[in-house]
Write a protein that binds this DNA or RNA. Sequence first.
DNA 1: CGTCTTCTAAACATGC
DNA 2: AGCATGTTTAGAAGAC
Length: 741
Amino acid sequence: MMVESATESIRTTPSSQNGVSSLSSQSDGGGREGGSNCDTNGEISPVDLLHLQQQQALQAARQFILQQATGLNSPSSNELKQSPVQVPVSMAMMTPQMITPQQMQQILSPPQLQALLQQQQALMLQQLQEYYKKQQEQLHLQLLTQQQQAGKQAKEEIRPISHWGNIKKRVAGNSDLTQAGSGRRIFITTTPTDLIGYIEKQQQQLGNKQLAFQQQLIQMQQLQQQHILNLQRQGLVNLQPGQGAVPIQSLQQAMCPTDLQQLWKDVACVQSTEEAMKHEGLDLTTNSSNTTSYSASKVSPQIPHHPLPNGQNSVHTPKRDRARLFEWISSFTKESSDEHLMPYSKGAHLQSTHSTHEEHTASHPLFGHGECKWPGCEALCEDMGQFIKHLNSEHALDDRSTAQCRVQMQVVQQLEIQLAKESERLQAMMTHLHMRPSEPKPFNQPLNLASSMSLSKRESEGFPEGLPHPPTSAATPITPMRQGPSVISSSSLHGVGPIRRRNSDKFCTPIASELAQNCEFYKNADVRPPFTYASLIRHAILEAPDRQLTLNEIYNWFTRMFAYFRRNTATWKNAVRHNLSLHKCFVRVENVKGAVWTVDEVEYQKRRPPKMTGSPTLVKNMISGLGFGSLNASYQAALAESSLGLLNSSTLMNSTGASLNMLHVGHDDVSSTVEQVNSNGSCSPGLSPQQYGHQIHVKEEPAEMEEDCRPVSLMAAVNQNLSMPGDERDMEEELPTEELE
DNA sequence: CGTCTTCTAAACATGC
DNA sequence: AGCATGTTTAGAAGAC
């Protein structure tokens, strides 16, 4: 509440209308502004400065989030181009004026959309980390300056905190400090030791306030994210690209996990949470009943344009209020964590754990790049031994470490919420793009990354291996017209009711690669896969270790691989049985255990050519990407716009190369398919055409093998989509249109 | 407009 | 009888 009030002035500045430019201006001048504020306003304490800095940073983060949240729907994001801040992938989401969500969906496959979101977050994370570092350094300088001005009163002996130890270093290295904002150069006449003493005293005095502030921030973020989530849900349903009535102010309050990283640095300023709690007679882990008086405060953060009342300055919060605030926080922490994390707790925790350990080194999770990774520490350690020593001395089991652990738990919790939010947003996006807009589907299938991952592993082990594997994985038959499955064919966009998915088979879709790429998506999203029953059944059977499955096993495969097939079981099971019986390619074999189903590849290949009918027109249309031209144009524009400045050209180059490569391959594949068709169609189905046809089919398998063995996780998906040409390939599948002409 | 393919639904048979 | 499995038919729909 206080945070919002404190940032209100910032938010209402003209520059805040543009989130990114606001960020950039804050990033460039935030520190200086703070400095000059202190010069002109003697009432502002260093703590105010600190908080102002934090709020500026958080505001910037919110605006990032805002951009993210409104990126798809914002009708005008031209101003983004003006931003000097480079937000690589997120820009792809910020240029929606080029493509509607529906087009986006047609253009991008589910994992691509998912990856875009994730890439965006990852990049935001990086940028915000850098930004925060910058901010913090400025902050330290200002703090020191302010504290020097305030005088030296260091009398109490306070145990230094590593975070402030860093300041010591900085102070020692900066005997003269420039107060940029005022333009005055201040020469510090005091010794660093004096300053440190003062700082530490200040730190102790501020400890409780800091802690309250941090705790409150966390809770604020939870509230905000929940609110944003709700807004997003509504926005995805209600907000169309042409509408600009996005509750921007409320969305600006969105927080991102990066905020929490900043929190950590600030939390390091808190001397002891336990001590604070002793003083306040509070315990974060207990649920206080005295929360009714703050019920209004709970709600208020969710109200756009209505920042928290009475939150003019968190620094001036009286102790009593802080105590009550603690109560409120602790009670709400319980609430939010219990209520909102439940459905996602498993997967979300996995994810957050994963990301938290992103930078772990092989030696010690808390030691990397010569730095102690203890939250807020960053102490430099030459080697492992020194680090261990440091760890034992500085981060021993004491009040401070315990408190930090608690905060870290909250950080994780927050990340979980964030993940849940993003997951749900993804679900909403996918649902919106796949289903009829009038039929918003409930997300009654929570993500379960744990099970998904384990399943994927197991499945990858059991993948068919009998088929020959051409050495060139690039030979994976990807053609421009294969966007049907890879990009979720338009028919599948409306995944309710009868669906014609002939595109997938017709275009010799590499179901395996598509499925491998979108495996996680289909497992979790209630989206109909753009494959025929026959191709799915065949895939399931071929995926089996001995290439045979009982009917029940096929059922299980369907339900396991596709969330969509976890409902309406009677319908699709009937269809499966129907397909098994109908298609000659499925052979029933009496086994000892009973009957199993196998695939007659020859029959399966026989079955496919007629669909092509060898029509030159069809082939031509396919090659020219008929029907996708306009989309391609817009998508290309959007992609170029988003990628050029964002993907740092390397990824773009890769994808361009990949697309060209794929284009070539795709073209070849089409040609070969045509050739196959002609052979099968006009000539007698001799051995060689069928072998050729089989060969073509076989070309799909390597991708299947490769990609299904890839580690699957959200983070992995990000990496895959960031780095693997195979994934960019999908994004580029639409591009060849013009290049081919 | 006809053909092909796919999907859905349903009826029916068989075996446990 | 109920269920799982398997076969067959019919109709609708999309693509060509």
